[in-house]
């Protein structure tokens, strides 16, 4: 469903963030993208919906090629891709409900959205989603009154109300404590399964990735160095992805998690 062909990105500073990425994500598959900081994970995700303009290559979403779309067509394409952010990226001074409904902006005209007169079907869907993530009673609270985990749930609702085919998830658990991290990951994978969504999840916590996803892609210096199941991630493979020095740090970080035994 999503197909990347030889995707490259070179920043103006000369840094080559992506060096010819090729990737196929079939419908309904949840995929974790791991790799050290600066490997290009964030850039890759942002190149797909063109928050970052790729320098070369092609991005195919079903039968549309995204890299050459004009502004209007790009907006239509972006509606098909929900995005979830590391620091939640909720508009903090808006209410929870406004934040969720902002996911419908691509479908609603300017004045309607400006006056907050969303169609009843959108409002009902927002209620349903908030109920699903257990935040219905918070609907009229302002986003900055929420805790980290609650904010991320709102962020998930905002992405899902777009009615997307694909979720782009950028470090969803980086700012959360271990327990909330797992809850959020479980929620995302469950929702993807319920709705048959494909997802690309950037994550630097390898153990967490292994727990929840059937396919892991390892990125290093802008190149794919691993693509396979979570159990294929041997220490050698991890060394290849993270490099010898970084790997030590990663081990220490996930030492307490019981899943590390499975990997070793």
């Amino acid at each position: 469903m999503l197909r990347l062909k030889n995707l490259t990105k070179t920043y103006r500073t000369g840094d080559q963030a992506l060096k010819g990425i090729g990737l196929d994500v079939p419908k309904g598959q949840v995929l974790a993208l791991i790799g050290p900081s600066g490997a290009g994970k964030s850039t890759l995700i942002r190149c797909i919906n063109r928050l970052v303009e790729p320098t070369g290559g092609e991005v195919w979403l079903d039968d549309t090629e995204l890299t050459h779309l004009g502004a209007g067509a790009l907006r239509k394409a972006r509606r098909e891709m929900g995005m979830i952010f590391q620091e939640y990226a909720l508009v903090e001074r808006l209410t929870v409900m406004e934040n969720v409904l902002s996911g419908r902006l691509g479908y609603v005209g300017f004045w309607r959205s400006f006056l907050r007169r969303f169609p009843q079907s959108d409002v009902d869907e927002a209620f349903r989603l908030l109920d699903r993530v257990g935040l219905l009673h918070m609907a009229d609270k302002r986003a900055d009154e929420l805790s980290g985990g609650q904010r991320q749930r709102v962020g998930i609702c905002r992405a899902l109300i777009q009615n997307p085919k694909l979720l782009l998830v950028d470090e969803p658990t980086a700012s959360l404590d271990p327990k909330t991290s797992r809850q959020i990951m479980r929620l995302i994978t469950e929702l993807c399964a319920e709705r048959g969504l494909a997802a690309i999840i950037n994550i630097h916590d390898v153990a967490l990735a292994q727990m929840f996803v059937p396919r892991v892609v390892g990125l290093r210096f802008g190149e794919i160095v691993y693509d396979g199941g979570p159990n294929g991630l041997t220490p050698d493979k991890l060394t290849e992805i993270y490099g010898a020095e970084d790997w030590e740090a990663t081990i220490r970080k996930v030492e307490d998690e019981e899943e590390i035994e499975a990997a070793e």
């Binding site: 907050r116 009843q120 409002v123 009673h137 609907a139």
Partner: peptide, 18 residues
């Protein structure tokens, strides 16, 4: 706002709190 159930809220209009 009191804690309302989803079924009550579905179909009701939503307005930004003033």
């Amino acid at each position: 706002m009191s804690h309302r159930e989803l079924d009550d809220m579905l179909g009701t209009a939503w307005r930004k709190p003033p």
